[in-house]
């Protein structure tokens, strides 16, 4: 099953189970979704539940907040992370705060989904990542799906939950293939150990998990070591227990993210490690992240602006040699 099909299956199954679930966004209905995530659902559930909206992101999320107040369970799709910026007032001032400001009297069972990240030459206004900002907002649960099975289970969980979720996808993952095990439920807040290892803990999420895996043979061969690769999955809350257990085993931490380095999400993980794991670590943590530049159009420059399997391998090998891995 493809990643986008897993998301579609999660929406389809939850919509079949609860008629109060509605999906809204640009081209989500008749058109079937820009990334085909909602394909077929319009024919099945009709225009009242697959709501084609105008290009007005503030209203897409703002209306979803009101729908949740009015007794529905809205799933809002934003076409890409950069467009979500137009809805940040609603996400941050409304969606994340009504439950708290009303002392629990208002509950917002809702999800805002969007893809983010560098795809292929979409340039600066269609290539950004905003998990760092949204993970810093109390009142939002932020999930990032890198894996097909996780995407299916985690989206189902988010749609059925009574809390507001930001569900982050990646532009380049929609056609990723994987198995979905519908019979084994997962905890969407638990980090996923993608590969076990004993010498270095490499933490990542979204598409960078695949890039780390692609770089791994080269790294392990060059350093003669075994790496443990962890997919965070939930960016807020963070499953620090899984990280702690792994770092206690490996005593080394590498954080890999596609995001710009300054103020990037990985800073939270490394800061936590500095505070909590300082005496367990045998080396200063390594942070691999995107360059502090708007994403350029030119393919060569674009690839220089983000980590790639080659640059990940190169940096980890260099760091490993300096630190006696």
């Amino acid at each position: 099953m493809l990643y986008r099909e897993a998301l579609n299956k999660a929406l389809d199954e939850t919509m079949a189970a609860d008629e109060n679930i509605v999906v809204l966004g640009e081209d989500v209905g008749l058109y079937g979704g820009s990334y085909r995530v909602t394909e077929g659902l319009y024919a099945k559930y009709g225009e009242k539940r697959l709501i084609d909206t105008p290009i007005a992101e503030l209203s897409i999320v703002g209306n979803a907040v009101g729908m949740a107040i009015g007794g529905l369970r809205p799933v809002a799709e934003i076409m890409t992370a950069n467009f979500a910026l137009l809805a940040f007032d609603q996400i941050i001032n409304h969606m994340s705060k009504y439950h708290y400001m009303s002392a629990g009297k208002i509950t917002l069972p809702m999800v805002v989904r969007f893809p983010q990240g560098v795809s292929k030459q979409l340039a600066a206004q269609h290539s950004e990542s905003y998990e760092q900002m949204l993970s810093a907002v109390p009142g939002l649960k932020v999930l990032a799906a890198s894996d097909v099975n996780y995407a299916y289970h985690a989206l189902k969980h988010a749609v059925m939950s009574d809390d507001p979720f930001v569900f982050i996808e990646h532009e380049l993952l929609y056609n990723k293939k994987g198995e979905v095990d519908v019979h084994t439920p997962i905890d969407p807040f638990k980090a996923r150990i993608v590969k076990e290892g004993s010498d270095v803990t490499i933490v990542s999420y979204l598409k960078m998990v695949d890039d780390v895996m692609a770089a791994l043979p080269k790294i392990e061969e060059a350093l003669g070591c075994s790496c443990e690769v962890i997919d965070l999955c939930s960016l807020n809350p963070v499953d620090y227990d899984t990280l702690k257990t792994s770092i206690e085993k490996t005593s080394r931490l590498v954080m890999v993210e596609e995001d710009h380095k300054t103020g990037g999400y990985g800073a939270q993980i490394v800061s936590w490690a500095a505070e909590e794991m300082f005496y367990t670590l045998d080396a200063a943590p390594l942070r691999i992240a995107g360059a502090d530049v708007p994403i350029p159009y030119n393919r060569t420059l674009e690839l220089l602006s983000i980590p790639t399997p080659d640059s990940i391998a190169e940096q980890i090998i260099e760091w490993g040699r300096r630190n006696d891995v």
Binding site: L58, N63, V65, G66, M67, I69
Partner: peptide, 10 residues
């Protein structure tokens, strides 16, 4: 926008 969404829900 919240009021409009609520009207949709109602």
């Amino acid at each position: 926008p919240n009021a409009v969404g609520c009207a949709y829900a109602r």
